[in-house]
Write a protein that binds this DNA or RNA. Structure first.
Lengths: 138, 138
DNA sequence: TAATTTTTGCAACAATGCTGCAAAAGTAAC
DNA sequence: GTTACTTTTGCAGCATTGTTGCAAAAATTA
């Protein structure tokens, strides 16, 4: 397990540091998206809150992690399956449980194929499309 | 115009107050989603920030307004076309321009029909599905 | 107009996002 | 391994935002 952490960091051209390895370990061991708070609670050591904050940003910039926002303000982070900077993996579907707050990443999707896990029920969904409007596209 | 503000408030069972009428006026005159800050800047008078905050929440609770979050933390508010509490209008597609930050509401959608306005280009989209997971569904 | 309910403004606090800077740790070259 | 250089971390600290409680003001109802 420790080996793949090292590998992941190396592949993404990030130096290996205790905090990064620790955080990555937490994210690897979870199949769902975690809030900053949830990640902190699972870390082996207490790092400065700014460090955790910056590390998450580093991971995102490196394409190692992606984020979702549910309920207006709850930001959750999850390991990207593949390097989202390189390939066409530019769409994400996430399932958010309104009761327990759990967010699971459903991976890539096309607007015409919604993959809902069995026994999950959909109340509503929201599509956020990022791109350029007509004015900025000119 | 003032008449439709009054109407909207009445239909949603909300008392008419200067702040509400003012804010509703701003939202009606815009076809896109606005941040709390943008709304404040367009108001005729300066209301307490808590009042604006609470009024937005009141509007959302009443189904008069809905919200989108882009770029992790930017929350934007837009007038709902119909009362989203009553009918099946439980899905929203929003277009977010990464350059100017503009968010336009594309209205209701099904995952298999993505309606992108002409000359808009998509970089990526995100689908947030709210509902119940298997565990909470039991 | 009076009585009752609702809304607003203010004070205040917690949590979060973020920056600059110096210390510590990591990396590379010898 | 030691040295020199680069990167990361921790800390102090500030701005913004989300939120609550309460009393004053406004709106609604009778």
């Amino acid at each position: 397990m420790s080996k793949s952490i090292k590998e992941l960091l190396r592949v993404h051209k990030l130096n290996k540091t205790p905090c990064r390895a620790d955080m990555l370990g937490v994210l690897i061991e979870t199949d769902r998206a975690l809030s900053e708070q949830e990640i902190k609670e699972q870390l082996a050591y207490d790092y400065d809150r700014v460090t955790v904050f910056r590390t998450l940003r580093t991971f995102i910039d490196a394409g190692l992690v992606h984020h979702v926002t549910v309920n207006m303000h709850e930001v959750k982070y999850a390991l990207s399956k593949r390097d989202s900077r390189q390939n066409g993996d530019n769409a994400h579907a996430h399932f958010h449980c309104e009761t327990c707050g759990q967010v699971v990443c459903l991976g890539s999707f096309s607007p015409d194929e919604a993959v809902i896990p069995e026994h999950f029920s959909v109340k509503d969904y929201e599509l956020i499309i990022n791109g350029l409007c007509a004015k900025c596209n000119a």
